[in-house]
């Protein structure tokens, strides 16, 4: 019962942050601010969705003692680690590429990177 509530809470938080991330992508003015919304919130939301799956796996494992639920939890954690690391690095690659292709952050109050390259 507690596990069910925990799962419901995790799924709710996860979907909320994923939704905010997508709204951010649609709403923000330039590629850098969109990246903020995309990387942070969808990674965080997916962490919570995966946490819900892990809670589900562990609660079923304690209930039935079936080893496949442990496998489910462990694999979910591995998928989550792969996602978190690659999302951060991917965001960095996109930001760098956008800057190299000459797209300046707009609006922006300052751009030290441009001064450096010039």
């Amino acid at each position: 019962m507690i596990a069910d509530l925990l799962i419901l809470a995790c799924v709710g938080i996860g979907l909320l942050f994923n939704t905010l991330g997508i709204i951010g992508i649609l709403r923000f003015p330039d590629v850098y601010t969109r990246l903020h919304a995309e990387t942070k919130t969808t990674t965080f939301g997916t962490i919570f969705l995966a946490a819900a799956v892990v809670v589900y796996g562990v609660s079923r494992l304690l209930e039935s003692g079936d080893g496949q639920y442990l496998t489910l939890s462990v694999h979910t954690v591995v998928a989550l680690l792969a996602l978190a690391v690659t999302n951060a690095t991917g965001a960095h690659a996109i930001a760098r590429a956008a800057h190299r292709s000459g797209q300046a952050p707009s609006p922006a109050v300052i751009d030290r990177y441009l001064e450096e390259e010039a």
């Binding site: 905010l20 952050p105 450096e116």
Partner: peptide, 12 residues
Amino acid sequence: VITGNIRPGIVR
């Protein structure tokens, strides 16, 4: 995201 209150820039 909700308020749209941003003031972006690149710093070192």
